[in-house]
Amino acid sequence: MAKRIEVSGLHAYYGGVHAIEDISMTVEPRSVTAFIGPSGCGKSTFLRTLNRMHEVIPGARVEGKVMLDAEDLYGSSIDPVAVRRVVGMVFQRPNPFPTMSIYDNVAAGLKLNGVRRKGQLDEIVEQSLQDANLWNEVKDRLGKPGAGLSGGQQQRLCIARAIAVQPQVLLMDEPCSALDPISTLAIEDLIGKLKSQYTIVIVTHNMQQAARVSDRTAFFNIAGTGQPGKLIEIDDTSKIFTNPEQKATEDYITGRFG
């Protein structure tokens, strides 16, 4: 299931603005990779290039290569819609579909892609909600609106929705920043559980979180306002947090700037 991502020489632009510059890295399958760095350094932009969500924004474009195992996601014959089925995404703010019930939210990705068999849907919905640690809380009210859940539950619902389409990579853009510590813990436990099946990439502003959940950590930075974001270093999380190669990483982690 899980796939390796190899990025080489990636640049991303918003219109004329050069947002990230020349990023190369490898993301190992069945592991959690955390992206840390100050605001505006291009972490989220880079994350969105990994499932071609970047180009959804008018004027945005990407140069470079993103290899998912043997396939280049930016190859000319690749359908971005198909890419997003393989590389799922969870957003910063929980965004369940307001017109749909809990069940329909989880089933949305499948239904909208043509899976109609009730038995199959029931099974996948239950499995996804269980994987997202939400099943026990919602199993008696699957027909109730998804927007009626609490923030933390909504975010787990969004995770269930993302894994219901059985992606091979899961991208998470600050999935806990709008949540309280208890919901955050639930999601972190979930990430630990999910990494046995998926390749997970998580953007976070919380360095303790990066240290807790990730196997590898990438530090991004910008030279100054208006400059493109760059990858400073990527290494095992334990190394980044105890003995980073770069001075800037150490300064950021110890709180001397950013």
Binding site: R84, F91, N95, L112, C158
Partner: peptide
Amino acid sequence: PNDLREASYALGVPRWRT
């Protein structure tokens, strides 16, 4: 909200179905 469009695209749903 644009969030909903992005949520749908991120599930691999084509634009017209979204």
